[in-house]
Design a protein around this nucleic acid. Structure first.
Lengths: 237, 237
DNA sequence: TATTTGCGAATGGTTAGACCATTAGTAAAA
DNA sequence: TTTTACTAATGGTCTAACCATTCGCAAATA
């Protein structure tokens, strides 16, 4: 009938108060909290307890702590870094398998490509074409350009996400890319043919996006990811 | 030419060491760290600094700290709670809009339904049918059953995610659902007709899944989410 | 005058030692 | 056998001091 009374620790109380102030906009990004020795007075706690609270807020990505005079706790812009870190832990922990990750990407990349095709502006397309050119350049350098090629490949995918205009797709896909490298390095059977095929895929996707053909872009992206994943899973066995 | 030397704080060093031990499996979920007063000796730091490190690990969801004799820091199973919290902050902060969230759901739910249809086992289907029955029951209770209906609706969606067998879909969709309520409450034009329509959708999705018709399930789920979002966005304006 | 050097002060980082609060187990009392 | 009370171990908090880093200003220097 009754719920257990939640016995808040002092530091938790501080965390909640500051977090709430940030969420409600009372504390704006860029602004600064008072110095620890003053804050502890305002909260009526010891410095150690206050610091535990600040550490939690820092880990949450809500504040950044700088040393030195004029240092202190600065309110940060809310971002998706933590999302990446958490996703990374899930992946490293093998709660999320390569297969899971691959399957997830298939759906996401298709959606993203379709949205990008619908919404592409001229500037976006120019950026895509430039990245495509870069990727082609890396490919011509032979083996020593492979790493750079893969990085540019990723940039193209992220640019598509950016073009989708959806912050959630951007955040989640960014997280996926930050964490997929483990698998590239271990499971991808690197070869000139594979990268060339990859490059052709990218060209096709960009072409479909340029023509605002959402369904073609979706299909291209999906097949691209699916084939790529197929190679990795084959090597894994 | 050179990179700035990273001057690790003492507590960061402790965090990294313990986190690494957990990730590598040297510390297993359920096992316990030594007491603070002993740990501080092992690391050669003061108790305050150690506690800052433990607070960070706690916030990361890696350990749980219990008081009392036989208490201490217990290694936790890695889960997606933090993912939810981060997503929640992004949403509350309006970095992620209702529209973003809706668009994201459309793609995800379609994929999930398709996967569930492919992989549904008999036990899964029985569970789905039972949940469907529950939902129908709530609906018959009239207005006072609406809340319960929405909760069951969610359970059905999450059950589909579970059936997909993909941990990533499960984690991300769970996070989405934990945070979408804000919008339901504010933007959904509650009515008997809407909930009935919703219920019919669910029945269709479950039917498609039962027949292992992946594409039908995908289409049903997509349209279901899209219509639902349409209602919310209409009211929002 | 312009530049470099060095110092002072404010801020976070760390330490030490003490005491309070919570809890599991055990011994004593009923 | 059950209840009660105590004990000890553990995390939670406090105080007070000192160390480390950084910015700005003043003095020394070119």
């Amino acid at each position: 009938m009754f719920k257990t009374v939640k016995q808040n620790k002092a530091y938790q109380d501080v965390v909640e108060q500051i977090q709430e102030a940030i969420m409600e906009g009372a504390l704006k990004p860029g602004s600064q909290l008072p110095a620890e020795r003053e804050l502890k007075e305002q909260f009526g706690i010891s410095r150690g307890t206050l610091r535990e609270a600040l550490r939690v807020l820092e880990q949450k990505g809500l504040i950044e702590i700088r040393t030195g005079v004029a240092g202190g706790s600065i309110i940060r812009e809310i971002n998706s870094e933590n999302l990446s870190e958490n996703l990374g832990m899930l992946i490293r922990n093998r709660s999320v398998s390569l297969h899971d990750l691959a399957e997830f990407r298939e759906g996401m990349e298709g959606d993203v490509a379709a949205l990008a095709a619908q919404r592409a502006a001229k500037g976006d397309l120019a950026q895509l074409v430039e990245l495509l050119g870069e990727a082609g350049g890396h490919l011509k350098q032979g083996r020593k350009g492979w790493d750079a090629f893969i990085r540019t490949d990723e940039q193209i995918h992220l640019e598509l996400a950016r073009m989708s205009g959806n912050q959630l797709f951007i955040a989640v896909l960014t997280s996926v890319y930050r964490n997929i490298h483990t698998y590239y390095e271990n499971y991808l059977p690197w070869s000139k043919e594979l990268l060339q095929e990859n490059f052709d895929d990218l060209r096709n996707i960009v072409a479909a996006v340029s023509e605002h053909d959402a369904e073609a872009a979706r299909q291209m992206a999906l097949e691209h990811v699916r084939r790529f994943n197929g190679y990795m899973e084959k090597k894994q066995v």
